[in-house]
Design a protein around this nucleic acid. Sequence first.
RNA 1: GCCCCUAUAGUUCAAUGGAUAGAAUGCGAGAUUGCGGAUCUCGUGAUUCAGGUUCGAAUCCUGAUGGGGGCACCA
Length: 570
Amino acid sequence: MMRSKIKNILVETASKKFGLKQVPDFSVEIPENSAHGDYAANIALVLARQLKKNPLDIARILDMELEAWSLKHGLKTEIVPPGFINFFLNSKILGETLKDILKKKNKFGRGQPQQGTIVIEYSSPNIAKPLGIHHLRTTVIGQALVNTLRFVGWKVVSLSFPGDWGTQFGNLIAGYKRWGKPEKIKQNPIKELLKLYVMFSQAAQGHPEMTAEGRREFKKLEEGDKENLRLWKWFARESYKDFNKVYKILGVKIEHTIGESFYEPELKKLVDDAIKKGLAQKGADGSVVIPLKDSPTPEIIRKSDGATIYTTRELAAIRHRFKKWRADKILYVAANQQTFHLEQVFKSAVALGLAKRAQLGHVKFGMVLAPGGKKFATREGNLIPMEDVLKEAEERAKKIVEGLNPKLSQKEKNKIAHTVGIGAIKFFDLSQNRLSDIVFDWNKMLNLKGASAPYIQYSYARLKSIIRKSKGPFTQFKSELLKENAEIALIKHLTHFPEIVADSAQKYEPNKLAEYLLRLAEKVNTLYEKVPILSAEKEIKNSRLALINAAALIIKNGLGLLGIEASERM
RNA sequence: GCCCCUAUAGUUCAAUGGAUAGAAUGCGAGAUUGCGGAUCUCGUGAUUCAGGUUCGAAUCCUGAUGGGGGCACCA
């Protein structure tokens, strides 16, 4: 990547020229304003204070020293007040990049495969409830992170950790025993189970004897009660069928699904060992806690009734993951609300010697809020099933396809509606900063115009349309023939793809890549309007075909990293 | 009460401490004998407030205000 080459040579040159042991951190950025070059370094500004020199003088000294290197690497430099060094790529190096893209295709921009193993836990629904709109972000962001981190060279283990164990299943079983009807559940399993759970939770409010009843049922489940175990297995089976249906629509593939219940057999020993080693303490009421420094509360790992708790299972999971996959790191793609809880789990894991703090990371994100900015709550039963949202998106997209391309076959229309509708929803999420809240709004989410996946997909389809109409060739070009502004802007943008993907992966910020793809589509559309391709003179035509071929490759690959499909027709 | 996230055009979002704060949408004006008008071009309009640090602050620090979330035997 050119950016890291520039950074490295600047560090090297500065330390040599000014006798520095440590060059302070500085940036080589990709300026938004093209007049500021293709890369801009602020090293002279950063060094000015330390060296007590005029930043412009420092920039000039560095630039002179770099002259030969720049020339060799196809860069023209420029010193600009107050002390920026701007680098411009020349047409020869741009041609080389274009060639590289056409050769490597969807491998262009890939990182070296040696960075270590990272486990990413995401999309962990609770059984006996449908996947809801509130699972959208963890699922979509999680999948994008899996794809991008893998692309830049990490070995990635993708993992879902469903909530299939705990007191809530005591509540569910208690509700079922009170009011459940097997034949009704067979008809519509998830909907009925959710109803029972909600009914019981509501009835238990202000009725401690019912709360105790729920806990008792879970305790029995944990002790291996046959009837409760049978019910639990049944509920779980139905749930996974339901999840997989939605994942299929969403195009999400999670390699491993290991629920909380998996860790049940090892929990007793885990807690007992912790007590034995003096890392956990038994309270007067029979509960067991891990005392935590720098935390307002200790963490409970066994309840006073002797049953385990979520944290206990999390700790067992951490131990298991490090062992099974020899992981260097575990990332939790989980909502901001989980921050305190996960912090407690991480601190507990460190206290028990299961992990170093730096190996555990919480990739947090804002909430999907109900219209009006309120939280969706399952207890009140107003959960919005993800499946409904996805179906609605497909239907809206279908209407648009009908209007635009009525001649396509029904089958093809459906396929395009799926690609466009699902893409729109995913992009709506991924194009925004992870941390901000999203207010759920059908119109905005499904708006197929403007800064959206369909805009990018449309650009792709137009390129593909030209490619279909021409007979090629698609890889023969002369870079000196690509000299229109629109062409140069596009090639330059393509050059930055590896750098953007690397940033996006490193910061766990898919919106960086989403933004890049929007800009790319914009440049493609501008080129499309300004520059004729099929009607151009032969050599120019071939060069332009090579260029749009490369652009199409990058769009397709970039969207793919976000988990979004691109259709050749739409 | 304590803790976490957050505040940027009317609205929805961008912007590693860096150059003239970018888009989308909305509104206004324009572009089609031509490769797909779901497009393109131009215009309009914003950093919550008060201090501080810095050559330079939307960004960092302190305080205030607004919004969301969380605070051990739920997950």
